[in-house]
């Protein structure tokens, strides 16, 4: 999947191709969801941010300056929607505010550990041992086009140029952890 392919899907969806739209959702639903979850929002708000982001893409299908970069566009839009929602929350305190709880990304749910152990336990354990910043960066680099700085930079709102050394370091650390003898399980 290259930028060109993503651009073709956008153009096809703009012309009424429902299957192209679903292909875009398949490719990027988790990116939008991941960006939204990076903020201190509860499940209902994360769902709203995701929905608003996709509605805005529908609205802008034929207006994107660079359809090939739709992944980065979605990451930026999800980030903006989340920040706008947080701003409203702060300015208009409501009962909802009380149920907003920070998501502790460092503590996977028990079922997540279970799933991961059944699939690729070795890689999962190595990934979980990475510094949080590396985990955050790498989880944004897995989207098509794989390893692209554009999406991660948009999601994190940092200059693209700042990510090169981090990507190299995080990947090297992950590889080093993978090459270690069987991981010491902590309980």
């Amino acid at each position: 999947m290259s930028d060109d392919d993503a651009g073709q899907l956008v153009r096809a969806a703009a012309n009424g191709d429902q299957a192209a739209w679903e292909a875009l959702v398949d490719r990027y639903a988790r990116l939008v969801y991941t960006v939204a979850r990076g903020f201190r929002l509860d499940d209902a708000d994360v769902a709203d941010v995701s929905q608003a982001t996709w509605l805005r893409l529908v609205e802008n299908l034929d207006k994107l300056r660079d359809p090939g970069s739709v992944g980065a566009w979605l990451a930026t839009t999800a980030r903006r929607e989340a920040l706008a929602l947080l701003r409203n929350r702060w300015e208009v305190p409501s009962p909802d505010f009380a149920r907003s709880e920070p998501i502790d990304e460092s503590q996977p749910e028990p079922w997540q550990r279970l799933v991961a152990e059944e699939t690729d336990a070795e890689l999962w354990h190595a990934y979980r041992q990475l510094p949080i910043r590396c985990q955050e960066l790498l989880r944004l680099l897995v989207f098509e086009p794989v390893g692209s700085y554009a999406i991660a930079a948009a999601a994190l709102s940092v200059p693209i140029g700042s990510l090169g050394p981090s990507r190299a370091r995080c990947l090297a650390t992950l590889r080093a952890l993978l090459n270690q003898p069987a991981p010491q399980r902590r309980t």
Binding site: A13, W21, V25, V58, A116, D120, Y127, L138, V146, L171
Partner: peptide, 29 residues
């Protein structure tokens, strides 16, 4: 790239999007 692709499939399972969220994205169209 292979490592990132492997990590991508792993995260897709561990960190999956709730079906209602995905359905809402599809329905936005």
């Amino acid at each position: 790239e292979e490592l990132l692709v492997r990590l991508g499939s792993l995260l897709a399972e561990v960190d999956s999007v709730p079906e209602s969220v995905r359905a809402a994205a599809v329905a936005s169209y």
